[in-house]
Simulated assay, not measured.
Amino acid sequence: MRKINTINDLEFECGLLEKCNHKTKSKISVSQLLNSVAEGIESSITGSSDKTDSFISKIIKNFKLKKFSSQASWDPKWKIHGVPTEFSEGDWKDSLVRLKTSITAFKLHSGPFANHPDFGQLDKPSWEIVHLKVADYLLGQIEIEGREKFQQPSAANPKNKKYYKNKKFHHKKKKFKGEKH
């Protein structure tokens, strides 16, 4: 099962596309899907951040972002800006290089970030959430043969958080002269 939760997971998917045979399950080509993800990442870095929203608009956009962020799966009502609707063949390797370059640029970029058309002004962690959800949805439309041979970074050896959370260390408290216990 593929789920892109981190930038490392997104880079892992890019690596799988290089290593394995793949085909699209949607009405657009693999190169179009990859270019759409790359374009979204690039626009967050290079787009305009000049527009300011009214107070009410900021509240509405913040509510939309929280609703979008909290959803576990993709809602068909969400629209992705700039995704092509007609099939056009392209070189998927060039598109993959573009995506990998945009991921690296995003990781290195510290700000300012562009305004999102639906969510307004976002910081880097918020943009990352948006990019990962969009990438998870769009790259989920690519069928990768042999995926089961490879393990996704976020699924590899997760630390048992419950163990560390519940472990209690009982040390005998040293008593000092004159201290009552």
Score class of each variant (00 low, 15 high):
D91P: 02
K100T: 06
R98M: 08
H116F: 05
G82K: 07
Y163A: 13
S69Q: 12
A105Y: 02
V83L: 08
G178C: 04
E39L: 15
W74P: 01
E42R: 14
F150T: 14
R2Y: 14
G178Y: 14
S69N: 14
E89Y: 05
G178N: 14
S69A: 15
E13D: 05
T101W: 12
S31M: 07
Y137H: 15
L17T: 11
N157E: 15
F87N: 09
F119L: 11
H109F: 10
E86W: 00
K172T: 13
W92N: 01
K180Q: 08
G47D: 09
I103E: 08
W74C: 05
F119G: 07
I56A: 15
K165G: 11
Q121H: 11
A114L: 03
P117D: 09
Q71I: 10
G90V: 03
D123R: 08
H109M: 07
K149I: 01
I103L: 09
N166K: 09
I60L: 12
I129S: 06
S95M: 07
L33G: 04
I80K: 13
P112L: 05
F113P: 00
D50V: 10
K100C: 08
E128T: 08
G120C: 06
F150Q: 14
N160W: 04
A38C: 12
A156H: 10
G82P: 03
V97H: 08
N8P: 01
P76D: 02
Q151K: 10
A38Q: 11
F55C: 02
N157C: 08
